[in-house]
């Protein structure tokens, strides 16, 4: 028992995350994969095969024989899914690029601010989280709609003659994505930048470097881990984003998150919705694996 103590303790520490991942990720994922290999039927549940526990071995055999890859074949054959996939990736990549352009100077300015104002600036970045995500996206409808705040202001100041058509366009989706994900890019980047040794840019200036050379040769390379982490933190959920394209993009918007929703709720085609979910997961895990690989290679090179 005395020898078992530390082992037991170690397992007690390990168990919660393992259980968490098992119960809330692996099991649901296995169920999703299983459903993606099934055939839709009008029944309860709306797919087949369903494992018949009472039939023993024969039931298991029937169950596995009933599984097939037709849903994936359909995803590959139907150009709509390809378009939705590409369009999701394009939206996510475009918004990530805009976020990098907006967020990098913002994080830099925060990191350069005086030690007393920095906590205030961080609080300002975080403060929107006090309001529900859904409500904040709804607020953008009020801003962007033809008779909304933005158009009213522009018309009032005589900058427009006719209201701009922004809501239910790709532009509205980009605005929404950029707005909603900015903190996820800024915070990790700021965390890295605020820890950079302030003597490094000074040393670079002392060696004759202009401000822009200091930024591109010293600050940016050293902040790169934070920038990549922030970009992934934005890109990954944006690929599968549903609320923003649904509320701001209108019915025309093609994104995987919306496809999934339509297949699941409108068409009640659980198997194809599950196949879309699996596809989404692969799309999203891909960049992480590539990033980790690059990171490991870089560390290897430094050794």
């Amino acid at each position: 028992m005395r020898r078992g103590g530390p082992v037991l303790g170690r397992w007690l520490v390990r168990a919660p995350p393992v259980l968490w991942l098992g119960v809330f990720f692996l099991v649901p994922f296995a169920i999703t994969v299983k459903i993606s290999l099934s055939t839709p039927v009008t029944a309860q549940p709306p797919y087949r095969p369903v494992l018949d526990w009472s039939a023993g071995i024969a039931g298991w055999r029937a169950f596995f024989e009933g599984l097939e890859l037709t849903n994936y074949a359909m995803l590959a054959a139907d150009s709509l899914y390809w378009e939705a996939t590409l369009s999701s990736l394009a939206y996510a990549a475009g918004a990530t690029a805009i976020l990098v352009l907006i967020g990098t100077p913002m994080a830099l300015a925060m990191a350069r601010a005086s030690a007393r104002t920095q906590p205030l600036l961080v609080a300002l970045v975080v403060v929107p989280f006090w309001t529900s995500f859904l409500i904040r996206v709804y607020a953008w409808i009020a801003i962007l709609k033809p008779e909304g705040l933005l158009n009213a202001a522009l018309l009032k100041f005589g900058l427009l003659v006719q209201p701009l058509e922004i809501l239910n366009t790709p532009l509205a989706v980009m605005i929404g994505l950029t707005y909603a994900y900015l903190p996820f890019l800024v915070l990790p980047l700021y965390a890295v930048m605020s820890r950079l040794d302030t003597a490094l840019p000074e040393a670079a200036a002392d060696l004759g470097a202009s401000r822009s050379r200091i930024f591109f040769s010293i600050t940016l390379p050293l902040a790169m881990p934070g920038l990549v982490a922030g970009a992934l933190l934005c890109f990954i959920p944006m690929v599968g984003e549903f609320i923003i394209p649904d509320l701001l993009g209108g019915s025309e918007t093609l994104m995987l998150g919306r496809m999934l929703w339509i297949e699941f709720f409108s068409n009640r085609d659980w198997p194809i919705a599950s196949a879309v979910a699996v596809l989404l997961l692969i799309l999203v895990v891909g960049p992480v694996v590539i990033f980790r690989g690059a990171e490991e290679q870089r560390e290897e090179a430094l050794r």
């Binding site: 040794d197 003597a199 490094l200 000074e202 040393a203 670079a204 200036a205 002392d206 060696l207 004759g208 470097a209 202009s210 040769s217 010293i218 390379p221 050293l222």
Partner: peptide
């Protein structure tokens, strides 16, 4: 400004650029 002065400084912390090799550090200026 510092980058226009014919004066150079050796920093207390050395402030070597951690992502550059010795040769790259020396070549920077």
């Amino acid at each position: 400004p510092p980058h226009r002065r014919p004066v150079n400084m050796m920093f207390q912390s050395y402030a070597l650029f951690p992502h550059m090799s010795v040769a790259q550090n020396l070549a920077y200026g």
